[in-house]
């Protein structure tokens, strides 16, 4: 498409890299917000751990040590292994499961959040810009989906689709959160669709698709980025929660929710194995919430 090529050239006089740089500078403004920095630190902690975990000298998270069941913090196993956070009811190293579990949860949470965003965002863009029957139909669909309590939706979608699996989790998250994203995007678009620069694009005969993607979408990115951070937090909770309820990512892969559910069956013997994943998810979600707060605070200053 040479057509598009020229368009692109006409649109951006700055090279692509410098635009990324501008975005980075904006995000870097978060230094000025104290809560934002704390959030950044927490998120970065889990992000970095998740990325480098294969290179860390940890136990195999799936390996069971029948000799070392439900050990407390900082225990030595019989064969000389050292379990920093102890072991769970099957003698698996909690630290290894925690870090690998974080990687798993973060990966699936990000993926499902993005899928839900693409679906909900596209719906919201179309309904908000085109209005008319598109809006009526899509809004009705969103209202129908929003009428399901989220948990009921998860239960229905996952049992209907045939049980726990990563793909089904993505479906469930999309069904449950895309309508909410739809509402946000639609509202933002409705707010700016009557701006003069949109009229200007219309009166020079731009295609509606181009108006939606090029003229409108970039102007709502600020609130959407903030919402994405918050929503990544909710989605993380969801992924862990589904694991806890036994309808999420299938075991034995380590997953914070499954870890809690497994340990819970053993009463006070499982308290140690239960606390760590609970703390882990809380710190990650807190980090995302604070990061989003910081971003909002910084962006409001402009």
């Amino acid at each position: 498409m040479s057509d598009q090529q020229t368009e692109k050239n006409a649109q951006s006089n700055e090279p692509q890299a410098s635009r990324l740089l501008v975005l980075w500078r904006k995000i870097a403004l978060i230094r000025e917000s104290r809560v934002g920095m704390l959030g950044t630190f927490l998120v970065a902690f889990w992000l970095v751990l998740s990325v480098i975990v294969p290179a860390l000298p940890l136990f195999d998270p799936l390996q069971q040590y029948p000799c070392c069941i439900s050990l407390p913090i900082a225990s030595h196993g019989e064969d000389g292994g050292f379990f920093v956070l102890g072991t769970d009811d099957r003698g698996r190293d909690i630290l290894a499961r925690l870090v690998w579990g974080g990687r798993l949860v973060l990966f699936w949470a990000t993926l499902s959040m993005l899928v839900a965003y693409v679906v909900g965002g596209a719906m919201g863009l179309v309904a908000g810009y085109l209005r008319g029957w598109w809006d009526v139909g899509l809004s009705f669909l969103a209202n129908v989906l929003l009428s399901f309590p989220v948990m009921v939706m998860y239960l229905l979608v996952i049992t209907y689709l045939g049980g726990a699996s990563g793909v089904n989790v993505i479906f469930a998250v999309t069904f449950a959160t895309a309508p909410a994203i739809f509402r946000i995007v639609r509202g933002l678009i409705l707010d700016i669709r009557a701006r003069d620069y949109v009229f200007a694009a219309q009166v020079r005969g731009e295609h509606p698709l181009r108006i939606m993607l090029v003229e409108l979408l970039p102007n709502v990115r600020g609130p959407l980025i903030v919402d994405m951070c918050l929503r990544l937090g909710y989605t993380t909770i969801t992924i862990a929660l589904l694991g806890y309820l036994g309808i999420g990512l299938p075991p034995p892969a380590p997953n914070w929710g499954t870890m809690i559910a497994d340990a819970q069956q053993f009463g006070h013997l499982g308290v140690n194995a239960m606390l760590w994943p609970a703390l882990a998810i809380s710190t990650l979600v807190l980090g995302l919430n604070l990061f989003a707060d910081g971003l909002r605070e910084v962006s409001l200053r402009d």
Binding site: E7, A10, Q11, S12, N13, D196
Partner: peptide, 22 residues
């Protein structure tokens, strides 16, 4: 409204250029 007439996301030049191209 001068505050709405230009798309805040793009440089001034690119917005004039777009019209020339279009």
């Amino acid at each position: 409204n001068p505050f709405e007439t230009l798309n805040p996301s793009y440089s001034v030049g690119s917005q004039v250029a777009r019209v020339l191209y279009k």
